[in-house]
Design a protein around this nucleic acid. Structure first.
Lengths: 307, 307
DNA sequence: GCGAGCCATAAGCTCAGCTTATCATCGCCG
DNA sequence: CGGCGATGATAAGCTGAGCTTATGGCTCGC
């Protein structure tokens, strides 16, 4: 196999020395490989005459096609590299994608017109070894030793409801009033933590068989439709809060988890990764709600933030 | 390079184990090669999931073209083998080719219709390392240690002239009369040896500036045209002697050289070589004039044969 | 005749690539 | 559920293919 690669170069150069140079080996190695190939085939590929080599009849017969085959291989791997360089596969979780990343991603696309972007959403953290993913945004504590980790923002959460729900079921000014109202996804772990942070030490009432929606976008949509109070990340619902479709009830709490940008170590210097990292860091810095405090310590306490 | 070959097989099988089987290696080796290739490329070629492997997006992108390239290589080398197997390149010297081999070669062609035959003629012994030759017929003593050697026949020589020359310049019944006539290629080494064998111990007269033709066919043609007496191998001029265009003068002498079939050791078992060897041995055996005595000893004495 | 190019060969080293052995995982089936 | 068969990953260790360096021989041009 290696011998064929050597033959291809030698045939093109009609000169073992310069073929060796192209291949980054010595002339002796080329001679050795060609000799071996000829012996295995039982056919002379080159004629040695007057201190030179030239393709023999047999060599001439195959040289073209062999070169063509290597061109095809080069092209295939070239395409692979190109494809790889020009496609950024991002894995993230639904709420982040839908409520934060997707609306901003157009700007990234504009800044990097040659780069195709594909978003893969999954609540489960992506396995880089299993799936063809370049970079992921995931929540947690940044403790992924195999991966290159970059802190993006802390997780915030606060109860939210639509103005119509508040006017129908309000007032919802105190934590107690909120706890007594209709909670969406009442078994969400954020609820007890928020109530605890708000000073209600007794546990919330057991789930009243309330609606359990699987992702924040759906909970937000339900809340906006006046179906109850959802506990959501204000960072993700900035637009809805701004135009009044949602109203934040009480203070936002700072979770002990963070949102991180991660990628496999070996890809950390790929141009597309660097571009994305740079862009997203800038977007985070420019997001007035993304609380870019220091990264959370493992199982640090929840922190209350002013509304 | 080897890794690409492994990738090609693994991609086709979508199964490392059976790919390893096809390649005659172990599953571990396939796994190792694929892993190395992926690392060098920085791209996953397979996705490992649920104890199986499947081509990743990247792998799928190139698998087809890679397989195609290998097909092209296989085809090229297949053509080479086929070409090599279906073409027999024979090197021989002019007189043998023109006066003995060529007229019989049609029979070989008939017996082996799939085999193309090419005759390369040269008075100099062929260099198998230099030229693309499968088999050669050459004169000498059979002492070519690098080659597979097979004895064909002894060399004979006898003076010959055309009937018209004899009637004009005859009689040419005794060696002395012949020596006094017009000799073609008078400096041919066969002349003194033939005269010596015929009992004339004194050297032949010095070259009278006579015609020096370079090959036996030309000498024979000159003799048939009545231009003088040529010393020729009766085996090669059987037809001309039979139909009277040439007349043999005196006895034929057995030279100490032989005519041999030779081929490179490594080709001795090639089908086309075996076929030719078998055919030519049969032709020699059936040639009533080819004196198939034992092979000559190195510098053995000339032997006189009855006319 | 001499030097520059080029290829073949010899000797020797080194690590890529293999094997063997073992483990982990998954799917299947009783 | 638990054992089994199939499949891959991984570790450890060996070995010879394939390299390098060094040299010699040949041919050509000056």
């Amino acid at each position: 196999m290696a011998a064929i690669r050597v033959f291809e170069a030698a045939a093109r150069h009609a000169n073992f020395t310069s073929a060796a140079e192209e291949l980054g080996m010595t002339q002796a190695a080329v001679s050795y490989q060609i000799k071996g190939l000829e012996q295995r085939l039982g056919v002379g590929l080159f004629v040695r005459a007057r201190g030179r080599v030239a393709l023999s009849e047999a060599g001439r017969l195959i040289a073209g096609q062999v070169s063509g085959a290597f061109d095809a291989l080069d092209e295939a791997f070239g395409r692979l590299r190109e494809e790889d360089e020009s496609l950024l596969r991002i894995s993230t979780f639904n709420s982040f994608a839908a409520q934060w990343l997707a609306p901003k991603l157009g700007g990234f696309q504009l800044a990097h017109p040659g780069l195709a972007v594909r978003l893969d959403n999954s609540e489960d953290p992506v396995d880089f070894a299993r799936d063809d993913i370049d970079v992921a945004v995931r929540g947690g504590f940044g403790d992924w030793p195999e991966l290159r980790v970059e802190f993006l923002m802390r997780v915030l959460f606060a109860p939210m409801a639509s103005p119509s729900f508040i006017s129908q079921h309000g007032p919802l000014d105190t934590p107690g009033q909120i706890r007594a109202s209709r909670l969406l996804s009442p078994d969400d772990t954020w609820w007890p933590r928020w109530f605890a942070g708000a000073g209600l030490s007794d546990p919330p009432p057991p789930s009243r068989g309330g609606i359990r929606l699987d992702s924040q976008p759906l909970e937000g949509a339900a809340a906006m439709a006046g179906q109850g109070v959802a506990i959501l990340n204000p960072v993700f619902w900035r637009a809805e809060l701004a135009d009044g479709r949602l109203v934040q009830l009480g203070e936002a709490m700072l979770g002990n988890r963070g949102i991180w940008l991660v990628c496999p170590e070996h890809k950390r210097n790929a141009a597309k990764i660097k571009a994305f990292r740079q862009w997203i860091a800038h977007e985070v810095a420019n997001d007035p709600d993304a609380a870019t405090l220091t990264a959370p310590a493992r199982s640090g306490p929840s922190v209350t933030l002013p509304k």
